[in-house]
């Protein structure tokens, strides 16, 4: 009884078991409602979607498509983070600061207008997809990284000075090594953007397949249960990678797991 009361009281801390139960119950309720009231609607019901998921996952072409999407995302993310890091670190050297500021503003450029240019500049579909992906992610990465650098307490630089570090050692200690865990966190948060963009760029060059290609093809045939099934798969994979990156962060930087005291 107390438990039931507590879940309705504002600003109440609930324990792990209770919160998991809440999630499960609410999700089941939503799915059940969908199943019952969605029988004659346009949107396929969960049971039909799950059947489609099962069919897709066991089909021969699924692994190829999945692998294609994953390898594209991972290589895009990898290259982007390296580029973004270089750009962000360079922003601390006055000569390079204007360039960095420009790149950050590129968030507001829309990719669609540049697709033609990129098509001319790149040699094949793979390169086109990769460069669009990178061009799309880097400004977001740089923005997040710069805000991390901005929020460094100047006292930390003072401490380096009193420990007789020069400017380069200070950069290494405070900005690079000292903030590596937060770089990882930025990667995790922006993985969602990359994952979202992947389906879009895959639609532009379908020769290599991929989850995005699958999505567009099923859309064309108005095969809604397959569309939804692919969405479920994309959603699930996204959540899985989010979790994986979070665990990796704890493992690589154990001090991030320490409960923060204010």
């Amino acid at each position: 009884m107390d438990i039931i009361k507590s879940v309705f009281r504002p600003l109440t801390q609930i324990k792990g078991r209770t919160s998991i139960t809440l999630v499960v119950v609410e999700a089941l309720a939503a799915l059940l409602a969908w199943e019952i009231f969605g029988q004659h609607g346009l949107i396929p019901t969960p049971s039909k979607i799950m059947v489609a998921v099962g069919r897709i996952v066991t089909s021969a072409y699924f692994t190829d498509n999945l692998f294609s999407s994953l390898s594209l995302t991972l290589s895009g993310m990898g290259i982007s983070i390296v580029l973004a890091l270089v750009v962000s670190y360079l922003s601390l050297i006055p000569v390079f600061a204007p360039v960095t500021r420009f790149i950050v503003k590129c968030r507001y450029l829309t990719l669609t207008g540049l697709i033609f240019l990129f098509t001319l500049l790149t040699q094949d579909g793979h390169q086109l997809k990769l460069s669009l992906l990178i061009f799309g992610i880097v400004p977001f990465f740089v923005t997040s990284l710069l805000s991390i650098i901005d929020s460094i307490n100047t006292q930390e630089y003072d401490l380096c000075k009193t420990l007789r570090m020069n400017h380069w050692q200070t950069l290494l200690e405070v900005v690079i090594v000292g903030r590596l865990d937060q770089v990882f966190e930025v990667m995790r948060q922006n993985f969602a953007i990359a994952w979202m963009m992947i389906t879009m760029v895959e639609g532009l060059s379908m020769s290599e397949g991929g989850l995005g290609t699958m999505l567009i093809k099923s859309n064309k045939y108005i095969d809604l249960s397959t569309v939804f099934a692919i969405l479920v798969i994309i959603f699930g994979l996204g959540i899985f990678f989010d979790y994986l990156l979070k665990q990796m962060r704890y493992w690589l930087f154990p001090y991030t797991k320490i409960e923060k005291r204010s």
Binding site: N153, Q155, E156, D158, L159, K161, T162, L163, R164, M165, E173, V174, V177, G178, L180, D181, F253, Y255
Partner: peptide, 30 residues
């Protein structure tokens, strides 16, 4: 010049990404 005088600021700042031992080791670089 900065570096000739040690400072212990109001909020006892240390490098959060290093263990206490490594924080102390860093002070002995020179």
């Amino acid at each position: 010049e900065a570096g000739q005088v040690g400072i212990v600021p109001q909020n006892y700042l240390l490098f959060n990404h290093r263990s206490i031992h490594d924080n102390l080791r860093l002070a002995m670089k020179h």
